[in-house]
Design a protein around this nucleic acid. Sequence first.
DNA 1: GTGAAAGCGCTAACAT
DNA 2: ATGTTAGCGCTTTCAC
Lengths: 345, 345
Amino acid sequence: MSVTIRDVAKHANLSITTVSRALDGYADVAVSTRERVIALAKQMGYAPSSAARQMRRQRTDTIGFVISSLRRDDDSRPFADPFISEFVAGLGDEATHQNIDLLVSVASPNENETNIYRRWVLGRRVDGLIVNRLRERDPRIALLRENNMPFVASGRSDDITSYPFIEMDTQTGFSLITQHLAAQGCKRIAFIGARPDLRLQQDRYLGYLAGLQAAGLSPSPELVEVGDLTRQGGYQAGLRLLVKTPRPDAILGINDMTALGAMRAANDLGLQIGQDIAIAGFDDIDDAQHTQPALTTLRQPVYDIARQLVQMLLDLLRDPTQAPKQIMLQPELKVRASSKFLNPK
Amino acid sequence: MSVTIRDVAKHANLSITTVSRALDGYADVAVSTRERVIALAKQMGYAPSSAARQMRRQRTDTIGFVISSLRRDDDSRPFADPFISEFVAGLGDEATHQNIDLLVSVASPNENETNIYRRWVLGRRVDGLIVNRLRERDPRIALLRENNMPFVASGRSDDITSYPFIEMDTQTGFSLITQHLAAQGCKRIAFIGARPDLRLQQDRYLGYLAGLQAAGLSPSPELVEVGDLTRQGGYQAGLRLLVKTPRPDAILGINDMTALGAMRAANDLGLQIGQDIAIAGFDDIDDAQHTQPALTTLRQPVYDIARQLVQMLLDLLRDPTQAPKQIMLQPELKVRASSKFLNPK
DNA sequence: GTGAAAGCGCTAACAT
DNA sequence: ATGTTAGCGCTTTCAC
């Protein structure tokens, strides 16, 4: 069917060994031979079969990433999450740059995403994995551990002893942004979070509480709503918050998409954002600078984080015994117009 | 290292043949044996090695998609293109659903993306490919053809005889939306396009011209600018257009991102969108409904198209001799507030 | 209903 | 500097 190393060897009157070594650039091949082989291979359209190579080398030169979509219904578009897009872009760019492949899977909420991991891990489909949006006692981590599958994480789980990760200091970040809102004169600062089993919910919520305390404000259950990290979820939660009396004078979203949804809710209720109410988010997605008014947020260098995660994973694959690199980054506060507040009573 | 079929066979006191057949559900295995094997495999954490399977079956159960980023610089975030995200989401969802894997690569502008195709094709890394944003005399298509690599396309190239594709009738669509703008009273309707070698530029530009003609307006080179499908490109082109005298009274973007950029340009110049100037786009990305004012556009069911493309590709893999399915869809005009125009002189 | 054996295409250890 | 050979883990004929 397609051209194999045997065909090339035959045409070159060489053994397949020599062809293999010539193409892989081994030193013990005559220069003239090497050049001849390379030219011939190119001309014949030969490239090593990836399956054969994987089998022989016991290595796939492929890393995997499973996009876990947290929510999908008729109103919210799938995967519209720009955070994930940018993350995937970083993974893809760095993978290409390092000459490895990226296997991507999308786990819809109804299927058991652990199954995808299981298939990839047990079938040695990939050399390693990138994991994000970790949960408490994350079953994926357990699976990877049990099967010795190398992985790096964005954010950390409970047990951080044995794997590399990059994490934003979201707790400090949320404390700072909460204090920023308080400094605008806001007294009733609401928070739209996410499912409590998500690690990021815990960190960010704690940061929010810490920020309130630092500002001398007391927390209230009335001011906390649960979203789902999507614009739609933020919109719904925003509506629930804004009809309460007394009304919140600020809304902090667990991420930018949530904040964008809340902005829309405020808009629909006729409130002037950056005047009647302050709104802020987290991530600094592309849209954040392009809304009217622009969204105050904490910047997370998602693209760079993704690239670095790939590098960390490759380091780990090269030397599995090394101490896991664990990096903590400070998010950067981006103050824009949405967090102004001109109506302090 | 990891558990193979041999290990399972040994534990079960069976030949590897029987284990293989039991797990693959062949009929000629005793029910009791099958159950025993399945239980044992699960308990031992066995799953067939994907590399070995690929090699033996001469099939990868993987399809590929290369994201060709058209532009990357400091101002524009990579991959922020929601069109691509949604497309990838559709591919990923359907692939998962069909139990195959999706290999993704990101081709940065500086590397030769044909190299990625070459590696995948010659190395039989994937069973088939999804291709989009075709160009005139597309070298990728030539490569795929030469090497008998099955593929399906979103949009078509010059030679449409031999491969399946799904295409939007963008020409009709752009004609309609241009006429819609004219019907608002706009007389100087500008168009922000893209590189002329992109197939989509040609179709959409022709549609724009046809729409002008149908509305009794004459085209002017003054009213046409070149962008790059990004928000940033739309912004720059928008600025160039809006400082001209006389000023355009409508801007039609080749896609929504371009239109969004143009909206920002109009905003920056103090123009009221949907009043001083009408703006429209194409795609109906998630953001289109969330801008202020909401963006008039032509809806393209990107997610569904992507899913269907995967199905078409799998059909093609199952029966390579079948006549290529070629589908043409009509985009749906979504009239929103951005295309109002209240200042006809 | 089960097993033996060939072979997918390649790489690497070992020989020459 | 080049060739011989074993074997990666699996599926699939073919034989029993």
